[in-house]
Amino acid sequence: MTERTPSGPFFWTCLVAGAGIVGYGLAGAWADRADTRPADLAAWLAGAGALHDALLAPAVVAVALATRWLPGAARLPVRLGLALSALLTVLFWPVVRGWGRSPSVPSALPLDYGRNLVVILALTWLVVGVAIVVRVRRG
């Protein structure tokens, strides 16, 4: 088996651009260190990486293994639907729970976010169902 090494202009362009973006972020975090508290930021990033490796990555692998029994036409749409459902739920969980709602500010979080999340998830799975039907009819 041959070993591949990174090379080519695309790799080096992306490497330089990525290093520049990371450097800009680090410089900004350091310049605003009174607000960003770099030690807390580093701890949060380390914790997020550990949480990803301990929970998220195994969950994705479990979903991939669990959906292997699905027919080929349904496998990709179901996996994408599960990923989007998880992403939407995680992103909107704080507003669904009402974190940040204040009796002194009645305009903060005024909607029924739980119902809205259910509606969006239902629409997501409707699209998944349509995609499966289209893929079955084409194949």
Rank of each mutant, 00 (worst) to 15 (best):
residue 28 G to C: 05
residue 62 A to H: 12
residue 37 R to A: 14
residue 96 V to M: 13
residue 32 D to L: 13
residue 92 F to Q: 08
residue 39 A to N: 03
residue 65 L to D: 13
residue 34 A to P: 02
residue 58 P to Y: 07
residue 75 R to G: 01
residue 53 D to Q: 13
residue 79 R to S: 06
residue 81 G to I: 00
residue 75 R to C: 03
residue 33 R to G: 08
residue 99 W to C: 04
residue 33 R to T: 09
residue 65 L to H: 10
residue 76 L to P: 00
residue 98 G to V: 11
residue 81 G to H: 01
residue 45 L to H: 03
residue 61 V to A: 08
residue 66 A to F: 05
residue 34 A to R: 07
residue 46 A to L: 15
residue 97 R to H: 12
residue 81 G to Q: 02
residue 62 A to E: 14
residue 80 L to D: 02
residue 28 G to A: 08
residue 74 A to I: 02
residue 38 P to G: 11
residue 75 R to S: 02
residue 41 L to H: 04
residue 47 G to W: 05
residue 78 V to T: 14
residue 69 W to K: 08
residue 38 P to A: 07
residue 78 V to A: 02
residue 71 P to T: 15
residue 41 L to F: 00
residue 38 P to S: 08
residue 32 D to E: 14
residue 86 A to V: 09
residue 65 L to Y: 08
residue 34 A to C: 10
residue 50 A to Y: 07
residue 44 W to L: 08
residue 46 A to Q: 10
residue 39 A to P: 00
residue 29 A to T: 10
residue 60 V to L: 13
residue 54 A to M: 10
residue 27 A to G: 05
residue 37 R to C: 03
residue 38 P to V: 10
residue 50 A to G: 06
residue 31 A to R: 15
residue 50 A to T: 10
residue 35 D to F: 05
residue 29 A to R: 01
residue 81 G to V: 02
residue 78 V to H: 00
residue 73 A to F: 14
residue 84 L to G: 02
residue 76 L to A: 15
residue 45 L to A: 11
residue 38 P to K: 02
residue 71 P to M: 08
residue 86 A to C: 08
residue 57 A to S: 13
residue 29 A to G: 07
residue 85 S to T: 09
residue 36 T to F: 05
residue 82 L to M: 12
residue 92 F to V: 05
residue 97 R to F: 05
residue 86 A to P: 03
residue 42 A to T: 03
residue 47 G to V: 01
residue 41 L to W: 03
residue 34 A to L: 10
residue 73 A to V: 13
residue 66 A to W: 06
residue 48 A to D: 09
residue 66 A to G: 10
residue 65 L to Q: 14
residue 38 P to F: 02
residue 59 A to E: 06
residue 85 S to N: 10
residue 58 P to E: 11
residue 35 D to S: 13
residue 42 A to Q: 04
residue 88 L to S: 03
residue 43 A to P: 01
residue 95 V to W: 06
residue 51 L to H: 11
residue 68 R to I: 09
residue 44 W to D: 06
residue 39 A to L: 14
residue 77 P to M: 09
residue 92 F to I: 02
residue 60 V to T: 05
residue 84 L to E: 03
residue 75 R to V: 00
residue 32 D to F: 12
residue 86 A to K: 01
residue 92 F to D: 01
residue 85 S to Y: 06
residue 31 A to Q: 12
residue 55 L to P: 00
residue 86 A to F: 12
residue 84 L to F: 06
residue 53 D to R: 15
residue 84 L to K: 02
residue 33 R to C: 08
residue 71 P to Q: 12
residue 76 L to E: 08
residue 93 W to Y: 13
residue 42 A to F: 08
residue 31 A to N: 07
residue 44 W to P: 01
residue 62 A to G: 14
residue 52 H to Q: 11
residue 40 D to M: 10
residue 85 S to I: 05
residue 81 G to Y: 00
residue 62 A to K: 12
residue 60 V to P: 00
residue 77 P to R: 01
residue 30 W to K: 07
residue 57 A to C: 04
residue 27 A to T: 11
residue 48 A to P: 00
residue 87 L to R: 10
residue 46 A to T: 11
residue 59 A to W: 11
residue 31 A to E: 07
residue 66 A to N: 08
residue 49 G to P: 04
residue 32 D to C: 09
residue 81 G to F: 02
residue 32 D to N: 15
residue 85 S to P: 02
residue 56 L to K: 05
residue 88 L to W: 03
residue 79 R to T: 04
residue 50 A to Q: 11
